[in-house]
Every structure is written in C-alpha cells, then in structure tokens.
Design a protein around this nucleic acid. Structure first.
Lengths: 146, 146
DNA sequence: GCTTGATCTCAAGCTAGCTTGAGGTTGCAT
DNA sequence: ATGCAACCTCAAGCTAGCTTGAGATCAAGC
C-alpha cells in the first residue's frame, strides 16, 4: 500500500540471510519475481521475505528448488499471500517432514535388525534388497539437515 | 578361499548395484582400495561389497563421501572386518539417524505452532519475527532452521 | 556536483558426485 | 588362436545450486 512495500534486493538479502546473488538466481529460476525501477533496479514485495524464508526451510528439509517451486505454486498470484495461504502451504511442508521421519524410522528399525545379525550387506538383509532401495530413493546429497 | 576372495569390478558392481564408474570414483576418493592383476585390472575383496553397501546406506542418510570416509576409518586395516566391526560402525550410523529424527521432530513442532497461529506469513510469528529470540541469531528463519 | 555504495548484466567458475566417450588392453570361452 | 565382453586411463561433461569477477550504471548523502 505504501511506497515502502517495495524493497531493494539488498534489504531482502539482509532480511532473509540469503546472498544477493542467490536471490537473483532464485528470480532466474522463477522462485520469486520483482518489478523494476526506472533505473532498472529490482524491487521486491515485503511478502517475498516470507516467501524466501519458506524456500530456506523447505531446502533444509531436503527439497530441491524445482519441488519448492511446485509448492509455492499453491500461493496466489497477483495478491499478497494471507494467513490461510501460508497455513495451507505449511501443512504441505508438514506432510513432507512426516514422511521423512517415517522413512528414517523405518531405516533405523532395519538397521537395528542388521546390527543384530551383523549382515549389513547380505542379499537377504532387509536394509538392502532391491524393493526397498526403490522406495527409499529420493533425498540424495541435498538431504543435509545439519 | 584363495582366488575366489578376489573379485573384478564388474562383479562388485552387480553385487552392490553401483555403477562401475562410481566404484572407480570411490577408489579415487579413497573409500575403497583394490589390488591389480598382472594385466592391470582391479581386484577387490569380497568384504568390499559390504563396505560399499554401507556407503550407500550412509549416503541415503545424507552423509557426504568425506564423512562416510571418516566413519569407515573405524574399520580395521589389513584384516577383513568381522561382525563386531560392522556392529560398531552400524551403531554409529544409528546415532546419526537418531539425531536427524530429533531435528526433524523439533522442526515439525515449531512448524505446528506456526500453523496454529496461522503466522507463517505474519511479522509477529515466532518463526520469522526479527524482534524475538530468533533474531538474536541474525536474519532469516533461524528459529525453525536451528 | 561529487563520491560512494548499491545495483545491474553476463560469463565463467566452483563443489559434489558422478557419467560418458575415446581409444586401447585383457582374459576367458570356444 | 580368436572373438568379444569386460577392463583400463584420461579428459570432458553433467545437474544442482550457487559465487565471483568484470565493467557499467544508479541512488543518495554531503
């Protein structure tokens, strides 16, 4: 509503903790959009602070930028997201966390069995049969939660 | 128990599900070692099947190759690892899983609070508010991430 | 008006973790 | 002894997710 609803990239950087270069990269990737001033400088909406915060949280959960973009697609276009919008998308994220916890728990249980028999690599080991590998595939190197 | 204990890279590939090129890469990285035949072909120990299986499991948990190498350092050198060795290293992996589950659970709880107040997009939300304890750590959604 | 810091574009570089391709050799079955 | 799959090395390429650098422009305080 006021003029100061538009913030330059440096401010967005400070408010999100993201590097300016990262924000520009995200814009290229379509994760966030900006308008330009007469002098061709980017101006973002304040609500983009939250948008990029969401990106960071989702990333920590192991989602790739493409997946995050898909999640963000649930947010309205042309209107600043409201409480309901964020609730909806947050719940989606919660489901993601739940499934990851489940996967880890299953893996842990299987590892427990394998500690018992010391097998770890035997064909019959529950941890390592083909069937299981398919279902457990996904996270990859991005799945680093510090 | 003589020649049979040494396997070529293709066999190791089939037994682990890893690509031949990946195994060679791991050898370059020092995750596994081999001896050479007179014709310069690699020969691995049967126990390397288990070693590489461990690598894959650890990778799924989000560990980088460098970290995995550190874990593997716990295995004996010059002797084929026995059940006890693998039990020990498996337990180490189990701890890793536990801590990841804990982190996810904490994150989920915080996200729940935010769904409860519908705040993920509001300035006063504990997740994003710069003025509360989250801001002490600096900008960005640290409260959820840390 | 001047200076300084913030911003711009575009291209290239970087880490991780591999794969792919070219060109050549080995080893085992027939 | 021959054929061919499996093996070898080395270099380059690929995806993801950015960063860095060059060279230029913009915006704001004094």
């Amino acid at each position: 509503m006021h003029r100061n609803d538009l913030i330059p990239i440096g401010t967005l950087s400070r408010r999100t903790g993201l590097a300016v270069s990262a924000i520009r990269y995200y814009e290229d990737r379509g994760l966030v959009t900006s308008i330009r001033t007469g002098g061709n400088q980017r101006r973002f909406l304040r609500s983009d602070i939250r948008r990029l915060s969401f990106v960071q949280i989702a990333q920590k959960l192991g989602l790739g930028l493409a997946e995050i973009e898909r999640e963000l697609a649930a947010l309205p276009r042309g209107r600043t997201p409201n409480v309901m919008d964020w609730q909806k998308i947050s719940r989606s994220l919660r489901k993601e966390i739940d499934s990851r916890i489940q996967l880890l728990t299953r893996t842990r249980n299987k590892l427990d069995e394998c500690i018992g028999c010391g097998c770890l690599s035997l064909e019959r080991c529950a941890l390592y049969n083909k069937e299981d590998r398919a279902s457990a595939a996904g996270p990859g190197p991005r799945y680093v939660l510090d």
